[in-house]
């Protein structure tokens, strides 16, 4: 998937209902109420947090490109795709952002250090500058290596065999796998910068970055199947156990203990709107969510019907028609409906 295709895939889902900056927040993995809810409303799970370090200027450049090439048309409020964009095919992608949440970078960092260590040790070089500076990841990897008797040639051999086998199973183009390998370092071979990969492969740096994330997600899915034990260990703590953000989980616990939303806000020293965001997130993720403490059945039904009838999820449109409902209630009703 190219970066432009990623943008169009997201924009198709939220066309005419969200602003031009909303795909950016989604790709960055912003943990705001709006972004999290939109994932549920529009089924944007694969694309969440796929490029957490994406710079706004690069995103803006890509959007300008979509305008220039006739995929987007001017609209002061919302994303407005042209027919050409709407009829374009969205390519299949192994992206699974909601599951990995940017943590594929943690996996990659551990992998980088492990391979760098194996590469040096197996060639009798005992001292090198670690390619990952984070002390936390260094400590983790040291521990991992020690537990697996990393100086033994058999370990290195087994590790390499598992990388080879699992990557062969990974259903992404060969070129994508080369991008992954190019980001790894060893004795005498340093990792390549995005500019260098871009020049070698003849693709744009942003596309190369996205292809790497696709490769990692596809690969991690294979590793999760538990046939490559040395690699599976590298995933420790990488996969989000709960589908909720940590902050929403804390709110959930307090609510279960009988605190009101207001009390939770005071207790946690957060804005009440943030706590409301958490409730909406809970509603989105729990099929048995009980919305009755927050919204009357009558208003709930009105909102759901209106949204379906008018084919809209824009809060302002609904608020105009149902003035009795608060924005919080509208967001909640839309989240529950799914």
């Amino acid at each position: 998937m190219l970066f432009d295709e990623l943008l169009i895939a997201i924009m198709k889902a939220v066309n005419r209902e969200r602003t031009l900056s909303s795909p950016y927040h989604l790709i960055k993995g912003k943990k705001s109420g709006q972004t999290i809810q939109d994932i549920g409303y529009y089924g944007l799970f694969p694309y969440f947090a796929v490029m957490p370090r994406l710079e706004k200027r690069f995103y803006d450049q890509a959007v300008d490109g979509l305008f220039a090439r006739g995929f987007l048309q001017e609209n002061t409020d919302v994303i407005d795709l042209t027919d050409m964009a709407l009829s374009s095919e969205t390519p299949a992608t192994p992206l699974d952002g909601w599951r990995y949440r940017g943590n594929e970078q943690l996996f990659l960092s551990r992998l980088s250090l492990t391979i760098q260590t194996f590469s040096h040790i197996s060639q009798k070089v005992n001292s090198f500058d670690p390619v990952i500076n984070s002390e936390e990841i260094q400590l983790w990897t040291k521990n991992y290596l020690r537990q697996h008797n990393f100086r033994a040639p058999e370990t290195v051999k087994a590790f390499k065999a598992q990388v080879l086998a699992s990557l062969e199973e990974t259903a992404v183009p060969e070129q994508h796998k080369m991008i992954l390998m190019s980001r790894l370092s060893g004795f005498g071979f340093s990792g390549l910068t995005w500019e260098q990969i871009s020049a070698n492969q003849g693709i744009a740096p942003l596309d190369a970055q996205l292809n790497l994330v696709e490769t990692l997600h596809a690969w991690m899915h294979i590793i999760e199947q538990n046939r490559h034990p040395l690699l599976l260990r590298l995933l420790e703590g990488v996969i989000q156990q709960s589908s909720l953000t940590e902050s929403a989980q804390r709110t959930e616990k307090l609510f279960a203990r009988g605190f009101t939303l207001q009390q939770i806000a005071e207790l946690r020293q957060l804005k009440s709107s943030t706590i409301e965001d958490h409730v909406v997130e809970l509603a989105m993720n729990d099929p048995y969510f009980d919305y009755s403490p927050f919204i009357s059945e009558e208003i709930y039904q009105t909102i759901v019907h209106l949204s379906r009838e008018q084919q809209t999820k824009r809060l302002r449109d609904i608020k105009d028609k149902v003035p009795a409902a608060t924005y919080f209630q509208i967001r909640l009703a839309l989240a529950v409906k799914q």
Binding site: I115, F118, S119, S122, Q123, V156, K157, F159, K160, V163, L164, L167, E174, K177, M178, L180, M181, S182, L184, S185, G186, G188, F189
Partner: peptide, 20 residues
């Protein structure tokens, strides 16, 4: 300068990183 062969496929590069 040590002339090194530049790996062209991902398997070659893996071999370069972890020569067996």
């Amino acid at each position: 300068k040590i002339e090194k062969e530049t790996p062209t496929s991902w398997k070659d590069r893996l071999d370069a990183l972890l020569p067996s």
